[in-house]
């Protein structure tokens, strides 16, 4: 819309300036976050240096040992396990809603998944701690473990995968599906050879978004994974992820220790934001 001479008024200029300042504030938040993370990380980056974060003898911040590697490995392992579980199940449940379920069931199912997406992580953590961990403990003590973390994360990010996959499958042009049907293709052929390839970028975007969520999640993993700083030898070993480490130690951390925690926060942010940006490019953005 071009502005005509009639409605170009003084008030409009003030309005434009007010709106611009609000937008500058909104953008400023992101810059402030980066600025303060770097500012607080700086002492550790200077005095400890990046190399020692993966080469020190363990994580003993009070004795000056700052090896983040065990927690990095645990973070990646938990997120990977969660995606390996939630990916196929999430995509299958979107396929269920779009191609298998009768319309009424499909709609109810979609609402249920949306409801699941809104359940707070601390509630997943509470349930994992009081229901899931005791079950695993009966089988392979102590229960609070990498496996518990993977399962609870899988449960948490499943709605993300299912909802993005649902949107991606919905966007597949109807002509493709009608055409394939007219050619007498089987149901499995329709899904594997037509629908999924056509929805591919949205599906991958959703998986990346879910991975970002799994890596960045704090409370649920903190409550079920046992929080022992170690490189896990099996699924049943207790582990501590980066986010949980920050939440557990920030309360009493000072000087270099505190700064080292900010370094891990900065690393986490860059990683998660990078993944989310990739997901956004592929069209896996989740609204609402």
């Amino acid at each position: 819309m071009s502005r005509s001479h009639v409605n170009k008024s003084h008030a409009d200029d003030i309005l434009r300036i007010a709106l611009m300042s609000a937008a500058v504030l909104a953008v400023g938040v992101l810059l402030l976050i980066l600025l303060f993370l770097v500012r607080e990380s700086w002492p550790a980056l200077q005095r400890i240096g990046l190399y020692r974060f993966v080469s020190d003898a363990g994580w003993h911040p009070l004795e000056g040992a700052f090896n983040l590697a065990p927690m990095l490995i645990a973070t990646f392992a938990a997120a990977l396990g969660a995606i390996l579980i939630a990916g196929p199940i999430g995509i299958a449940s979107a396929v269920f809603g779009r191609f298998y379920a009768p319309p009424v069931i499909a709609e109810t199912f979609r609402r249920m998944v949306a409801l699941l997406a809104g359940i707070p992580s601390v509630v997943f953590g509470l349930w994992g701690l009081t229901v899931l961990v005791p079950i695993i403990a009966k089988w392979q003590p102590p229960g609070a473990s990498l496996l518990a973390g993977m399962l609870i994360l899988a449960f948490m990010v499943l709605p993300t995968v299912a909802l993005t996959a649902d949107a991606a499958l919905k966007a597949v042009p109807k002509q493709y599906l009608h055409g394939a049907n007219a050619l007498g293709i089987s149901q499995a052929g329709l899904i594997f050879n037509v629908a999924i390839p056509a929805a591919r970028s949205g599906l991958i975007g959703g998986i990346l978004l879910a991975t970002a969520r799994a890596l960045g999640e704090t409370m649920a993993v903190l409550m079920v994974a046992g929080n022992v700083v170690q490189v896990p030898n099996s699924l049943f070993d207790p582990v501590r992820v980066l986010t949980a480490n920050i939440a557990l130690e920030m309360a009493y951390a000072t000087t270099e220790h505190r700064s080292a925690l900010f370094v891990s926060g900065l690393a986490l942010m860059l990683l998660v934001v990078g993944l989310a940006a990739m997901a956004g490019k592929l069209g896996g953005r989740l609204h609402g």
């Binding site: 992101l30 976050i33 993370l37 607080e40 970002a212 890596l215 960045g216 999640e217 704090t218 986010t243 920050i246 939440a247 920030m250 925690l261 900010f262 926060g265 986490l268 942010m269 998660v272 934001v273 993944l275 989310a276 940006a277």
Partner: peptide, 9 residues
């Protein structure tokens, strides 16, 4: 996309 623990920090 920023994780909530980072908002906390």
């Amino acid at each position: 996309g920023v994780p909530s623990i980072v908002f906390g920090l």
